[in-house]
């Protein structure tokens, strides 16, 4: 009896915290959007009737997916190399990877202004090399937003994966290579499946993180690259319209859950062994 309950006892406190402090309170907030006087779906119809808001939703999905793919690839490469490093160097690299997360969004975007701005380092370099004749505007574009988000999420990917790659026993790899497997085959058939749980978790964390981000797109994309987080913020904190804000939030939650489930399914199909 006790044995059958063990899993629930272990997972219980954490589940309870999420249930009591998240599912119930947030659920109540989101449910309130269906109490609209004009019919339960009215706020949602109003949202989707606006071409502008549909564009924002689509842009948010697009930017988040691109950010996730790039962060997963770059994070995996970096984490793989970190995992091979000797002790001291490995610690230093992990700390270096964490540092970007510690910078405030305003100073960070200031750094981007210095690097990519009209009079920034990159433009000056290109100008003095004669590659361009006039400064190119690299900021306030979708590319700028993606770059800034990748910068923020690669560290998260590196940290998540370093714990996983660390756990892959050395002898597994050695056995594979000594049996004559080509490096790519070792990667495809040994490392990738073993790293898959970490890749899935990392991808989910990055995707949800970028989907809800607000300050970075506003500072580096401006109004031209508005994302869902900004719409939500405007409703909640500027016009005090919490029904409107909760409507945006509900749409965000549903879309994110759907995409996370699809992502997990796909990853599982690629590798049935992984969680």
């Amino acid at each position: 009896m006790v044995k059958r309950l063990t899993p629930w006892i272990l997972a219980g406190p954490a589940s309870l915290l999420v249930l009591l402090l998240l599912i119930l309170p947030v659920g109540a907030t989101l449910l309130a959007t269906f109490a609209d006087a004009k019919g339960w779906a009215a706020p949602y119809l109003a949202f989707f009737n606006s071409g502008f808001r549909r564009t924002v939703l689509w842009r948010t999905v697009e930017i988040s997916l691109i950010t996730t793919v790039i962060s997963v690839i770059l994070g995996f490469i970096a984490a793989y190399v970190v995992a091979q490093m000797p002790g001291r160097l490995k610690s230093i690299m992990i700390i270096a990877a964490v540092f970007p997360l510690l910078t405030g969004v305003v100073v960070r975007s200031f750094a981007w202004l210095i690097l990519l701005g009209k009079n920034g380092i990159l433009n000056s370099a290109l100008l003095s090399l004669g590659l361009i004749t006039e400064p190119i505007s690299m900021l306030y574009t979708e590319g700028a937003v993606i770059a800034a988000m990748v910068y923020l999420f690669v560290p998260l990917m590196i940290l998540t994966l370093s714990g996983v790659l660390e756990g892959i026993p050395k002898d597994v790899l050695e056995a594979a290579s000594s049996l004559g497997a080509a490096p790519f085959a070792v990667f495809r058939q040994v490392i990738l499946p073993l790293a898959m749980p970490g890749l899935i978790v990392g991808a989910v964390l990055v995707f949800t993180g970028s989907f809800t981000s607000y300050a970075t797109p506003q500072l580096l994309g401006g109004e031209r690259q508005m994302m869902m987080g900004t719409l939500l913020y405007q409703r909640a904190m500027v016009t005090f319209d919490w029904t409107g804000a909760s409507t945006v939030a509900a749409i965000m939650v549903v879309v994110t859950i759907a995409i996370v489930l699809v992502m997990t399914r796909l990853a599982r199909r690629l590798n049935p062994m992984a969680a």
């Binding site: 202004l113 701005g117 009079n119």
Partner: peptide
């Protein structure tokens, strides 16, 4: 702060 940064960097 954002305004001051935009002015100081010449944006």
């Amino acid at each position: 702060s954002e305004l001051v940064n935009l002015i100081s960097t010449g944006e």
